[in-house]
Write a protein that binds this DNA or RNA. Structure first.
Lengths: 150, 150
DNA sequence: TTAGATGCAAACGGTTTGCAGGGAA
DNA sequence: TTCCCTGCAAACCGTTTGCATCTAA
């Protein structure tokens, strides 16, 4: 069975990115696909500097400017999402396409838990009605500590 | 009747700030109270640079360093809250002490609507139970556009 | 009197920009 | 061949820091 081709998230992302680039008349450079691959090869959140160093370690030659440029494209086509958890630098994560979620941040370690709670959709609907607006994006983040002693 | 003393939010904040400074052994400098006054004299959100310019215009002599320093104290004693609405600079607002709220941001103009929806407390409680954590802070922000044509 | 606070300016660090050279189409 | 993209480095800008001076206590 050709399981891999059906389920590999990177292959799916690659197709989406390719189509996006073609539609917009952007070039399909090797750098852009290498960056996408690097992002899809790890879990969790990352910032640009971390990604830069990771690619250096993997002997990929890439500049920070290109990272910022490519991330912008990936945000635009929905393959990556951007967060700003109260710090003064941005964090990113690959989009899970189907599984929307929010975040809990441990105040001491900065560790991130992802969760999904359907009540957020009710709030969203209520706010849209109440103010006659259309919500495209939202961000819900909790900050706190563990109750189990360490 | 002594209405003013009972209801003036600045007077209330001043008392809280004074007590906070005394408890921590911090000095009650004129700069600190002038900054508090400036913050409480306007509505809505502000960033440090805006506050700095506003105080300059009012002929108050203050340095950015002192603004950052004092904001830190005001955050610590809960008189001011900090936001990072996806930009790379922080925005602040005076705490409304009793009226908790969240934000809707217009993607085009950056305008901010404040709202409160009690369902958020249910989500909070559920997350606390689910992950055995204690939530101290949260941030809920919606981004979107108006449905009424301009 | 003195330790903490202020103002100024330099340093810091994440992000953006300008530009010459390179490569996808 | 064209002109979009890349890499490099400088610029940018919000925030932090170092230090001499000042002042609340």
């Amino acid at each position: 069975m050709k399981e891999k081709e059906v389920t590999d998230p990177f292959e799916a992302a690659k197709r989406i990115f390719t189509e996006y680039l073609e539609q917009r008349g952007h070039r399909k450079t090797p750098e852009r696909f290498t960056i996408l691959k690097e992002i899809y090869s790890t879990e969790g959140h990352f910032d640009i500097e971390t990604l830069y160093i990771r690619m250096k370690n993997h002997k990929y030659r890439v500049s920070r400017a290109t990272l910022y440029n490519t991330i912008e494209l990936l945000l635009d086509c929905g393959l990556v999402t951007k967060h700003q958890f109260g710090t003064n630098y941005a964090q990113f994560e690959k989009a899970t396409l189907y599984k929307q979620h929010d975040h809990f941040i441990f105040e001491d370690s900065g560790e991130v838990i992802e969760f999904y709670n359907p009540l957020i959709d009710d709030i969203k609907t209520q706010v849209e009605k109440q103010y006659n607006v259309e919500i495209h994006l939202y961000s819900l983040t909790f900050y706190g500590t563990s109750k189990t002693k360490k």
